[in-house]
Design a protein around this nucleic acid. Structure first.
Lengths: 138, 138
DNA sequence: CCCTTAGTTTATAATAATTCTAATGTATCT
DNA sequence: AGATACATTAGAATTATTATAAACTAAGGG
């Protein structure tokens, strides 16, 4: 509960009213310092179990979108059927283990500089993301 | 029409019966030597215009999936709402221009070696894909 | 405090992409 | 040509997501 105030401030500072639903979602997402990858369905399930309050599906969608706009969450495009979200909004990369569908962060600092020789006129690079597929070692 | 035989062989060799729908889809997808990025909806529209025959939505889905299994197409995860497919199945990378939603191939040879320092026990790297977001040059 | 109001939540309906189903059609093999 | 296994099809079913409109609540002023 010690963090609730922190989340209230965080929400208020970014123009979102600190409702009990949003605070609870913050607690679920940000209370542990680890990176957390999730789908909306998974998030709803966790809230149901871990929190006492009931939060509607629509609110979870709204809140996650609001958090993405504010930069608290990032969407990760892996599968084009369900949206995956990431609490790690720093510039980083991903392993994806196709065997178990597991997604693992790679720190930005663990990837060497990337040299792209193609240039597109009138455009500049905004970000570079590396996506590494894994397989079992034989 | 000179290519039809080629597609018939291609399909047959990979255990797919060369039906007129599949041949037409091959022509639409592979007749030009350029890389082609598309959604199912776009593909259906092109077939409707360019070909005389009518192909049901279910067949387009089935065929695209069959082609992915055979390695004729690759799925590209960009947006998590519609599936994008790519006729370029070689190992390559992508620019994505968020302004206009345009996707541009980057040849494998135009990207320098990528150094990933993180290791996952029991797993080895299967593939590395780089995804570069573009923005307008100020 | 109480009132107002603008932002939120909610259940439910609507939409959109994709998959399933079961009937009909067709390529292939003998 | 006939049998059979594979394909196509329309339409229904499913799933994720978004929209809607009514009920609720946080914030600020009196």
């Amino acid at each position: 509960m010690v963090y609730a105030d922190h989340y209230i401030n965080k929400l208020r500072k970014s123009g979102l009213r600190p409702t009990k639903q949003r605070i609870k979602i913050c607690e679920v997402l940000f209370d542990n310092d680890q990176t957390f990858h999730f789908t909306i369905k998974e998030l709803v399930k966790i809230i149901e179990n871990q929190a006492k309050i009931k939060v509607s599906l629509a609110t979870v969608y709204n809140t996650v979108h609001a958090f993405i706009n504010k930069g608290y969450l990032k969407e990760i495009p892996i599968k084009s059927s369900v949206s995956y979200y990431d609490t790690n909004t720093a510039h980083h990369h991903h392993f994806f283990d196709e065997n178990d569908g597991r997604l693992i962060d790679i720190n930005h600092s663990d990837v060497g500089p990337i040299d792209i020789q193609t240039k597109i006129p009138g455009k500049k690079i905004k970000s570079i993301e590396v996506f590494v597929k894994l397989e079992d070692q034989k």
